[in-house]
Design a protein around this nucleic acid. Structure first.
Lengths: 168, 168
DNA sequence: CTGAGTGCAAATTATTTGCATCTAC
DNA sequence: GTAGATGCAAATAATTTGCACTCAG
């Protein structure tokens, strides 16, 4: 429903720039895949992306999707994310800063967030253990507003994990 | 060097209990694998575990290691962890509470930690976005004390990621 | 004895790669 | 025209599974 990520044309030009800079070529397939990627909600699987790209251009092979995603990642436009048990998802990196994820274990919805307080504590905790942190990942799994049952007196047990709903 | 996790005999009995409860059998291979698992530093790959188990009993196949690890996980004694780019590691769950991980990107060392302040913030952040958190994962990647170069004026860039050293 | 467990090899799943062909520049 | 790109199929890598055989209880 709501457009979570504005399909900024900046990314297209970023890719063009990165392609030009490296002496690479702009092809029909790459356009289709990039288009499908940008039109996505921000997090797509390879399978999803292949289907979407094929809608625009039937002659796109899985291998090219993988190769293009790697290219996008190298250009800093996409980032692979491996959530819990689901296949690798690629997210749009629109020059945005680092962020972490809330993942609904029922509907699969992914919400991004960032919290400076947590980041500070992470750095502090690591330093206390002799580590210099260069990166981190944090994922919170649970039920989103829509999937949460309305029952008031819920136990916090390990119950809530249903199989994710697939959206394709 | 230092014994990170005491090879508590409790776990052996826990497994026995879980095996008995389910009407399963205690076999030579399972003993070897459990022994190797408990003798580990707390985080092992399947490859590692297979090698260690074979030291005790050469007739252990990979399939049995996988099957036994699944059994251990179902009994609540082991937990699979997928760190950054490394193969799945299994960690000993000695009835210990939840914890998160510091991972050295150079030597592969894994240090566990827990921080109530961070956990509280996680819950709060999630609630603010309409999520009820049931679980989470957090990994901090960086250099441990031993691997950190002594240079004072380091840049925080994306430099630090070398390939992990394997220990086998 | 008998059902659970095991080894092996084949099957799966996710992804990469070699190669002949094609095409953007 | 040529280096880079693509499709296909074969190759990897990690893990699971079918099946005949073995063994713990």
């Amino acid at each position: 429903m709501r457009p979570r990520v504005a399909p900024s044309p900046d990314l297209s030009s970023s890719l063009s720039a990165c392609i030009a800079r490296r002496g690479l070529k702009s092809t029909r397939q790459r356009q289709a895949i990039l288009g499908a990627f940008l039109a996505s909600s921000g997090h797509v699987t390879v399978v999803d992306l292949l289907a979407r790209a094929r809608a625009a251009d039937p002659g796109v092979s899985p291998a090219t999707v993988y190769r293009t995603l790697r290219l996008l990642a190298e250009c800093g436009l996409a980032k692979p994310q491996r959530f819990h048990g689901s296949p690798t998802m690629y997210e749009i990196v629109a020059g945005r800063e680092h962020h972490d994820h809330l993942v609904c274990t029922r509907c699969g919805r992914v919400v991004e967030f960032e919290d400076a307080r947590i980041e500070r504590l992470q750095t502090a905790v690591a330093r206390a253990r002799g580590f210099t942190v260069t990166s981190h990942r944090m994922e919170l799994y649970g039920l989103c507003r829509l999937c949460r049952p309305a029952r008031p007196g819920r136990k916090a047990g390990s119950a809530g994990r249903r199989s994710r709903a697939k959206r394709r």
